[in-house]
Computed example of a mutant assay.
Amino acid sequence: MLETTRRRTLQALGVGGAATVAGCSAEAPNAEQAETERQRMEQQSGSIADQVAADPTDIPGPIDRDESTTHEITLTAEEVTAEIEPGVTFDFMTFDGQIPGPMIRIRQGDTVDLTIENPSGNVLPHNVDFHAVYGTGGGAAATTVAPGEENALRFRADYPGAFIYHCAVPNLDMHISAGMFGMILVEPENGLPEVDQELYFGQHEVYTDGEAGQEGKHRFDMESMKNEAPTYVLLNGEKYAWAAANRGPIEVDQGDRVRVFMVDGGPNLSSNFHPIGNVWKRAYRDGGVPEDGDFEAYADKNIQTMKVPPGSCMIGEMDTPVPERIKLVDHALSRVARRGMLAEVDVLGEERAEIFDPDANGSSHEGPQYA
């Protein structure tokens, strides 16, 4: 690829002057320019990455300190080709090569020194908008970076909760759809209630020029995105990424309280997030948490389905009294059965027939089969 300076790239894409909504330029590329960008990225496609699906268990541990600190955090924009499902490849845009991007975990009052890197092998400019930031575009205008360069931002996290971060350059909907989003968790000063296991998921929809399951290289389809008609609706970047049909299921022990962090990148669809065979024992809508530490009074209790708008998050906790396979789904169920939206959690332990007897009449009951 010819060397591209930051100035030339950003001018070509209309990034300059006063920032507007989400830190983007008021003069975003037109449809022809967007198509040129997409084609350039596809021409740069090389080897197929082994995986873009983030491991739901690979997240930072709870914070156990009572003073503020400063974190040095680097996010790398990675444009990668990977499989959505076997035989179907797609050009993703990611933070650190995974979907969702790495979960950032800090404490209210902490300072973040953020560096965003855009490797020289990339084609497109990128940036990051943190919903946990006071400041223009959540930092997007300050972090825009061309291929081959890096940029930096410092912010203090003054309010607690679980918040999305995402790319917000022009055509931000395309960048988010292709995988550029993640979660930043700002724990309140007194921390979160203790649990036994924590999991991290991200939902997004992908718009391609093929049908779901159609083998071959799928290319991004701007018209489908404009019409909000996705080919796939995914949890962690792949069809059934962490279900038994793919890389899962995830295993927990009977009796564990399991906390689930979920971010809906969208860019367009709300999620109706439901654990089949379980309930959100305590749930925190839009990722909100109490500053006074009274989680019991603040939480919604025994919620069957959490509405998670695009650009928002949820925190939900499940109890696991019986062995079972919990299916985490968007209860707009055609997205599960036909578009790839499913993860599974296996609870390992001993049967408790007084709570649930799956063999009361000698037959087997495995539950609904999506994957």
Score class of each variant (00 low, 15 high):
L172N: 14
T143D: 09
G61I: 00
F95M: 15
E194N: 08
G101T: 00
G135K: 13
S177D: 06
G138V: 04
M103L: 15
F201N: 13
V88P: 11
H131R: 11
P193L: 04
P147H: 06
G161H: 00
A140Y: 04
N122D: 14
M103V: 02
P86H: 03
L185P: 07
T70H: 10
I164P: 03
A77N: 12
A178F: 01
V123H: 04
H126L: 13
V88F: 06
H166T: 01
T81V: 15
A140C: 11
A157W: 00
Q203P: 14
V186L: 03
T70M: 09
V133E: 14
G135P: 15
E83D: 14
Q197A: 12
P56M: 06
A152R: 12
P86E: 06
E85P: 11
R154M: 14
R107T: 01
V133Y: 08
A146K: 00
F201G: 05
S68K: 08
P102T: 00
T111K: 11
P147K: 08
D64A: 15
A162K: 01
E79G: 04
G137I: 04
L192M: 15
G139Q: 03
G121R: 14
A157P: 04
D113I: 06
G87I: 03
Y134T: 15
V112Y: 05
T144E: 10
Q197G: 14
E187F: 00
T70D: 07
T115F: 06
H166N: 06
V133D: 07
D158E: 14
F92W: 08
F163Y: 11
Y159H: 10
M93I: 13
M93K: 08
A77F: 08
V80N: 08
F201K: 10
D64P: 12
P62S: 12
G202T: 09
T89V: 06
M103C: 09
I104A: 08
Y134R: 15
F163P: 06
A82K: 02
V186C: 07
E117D: 13
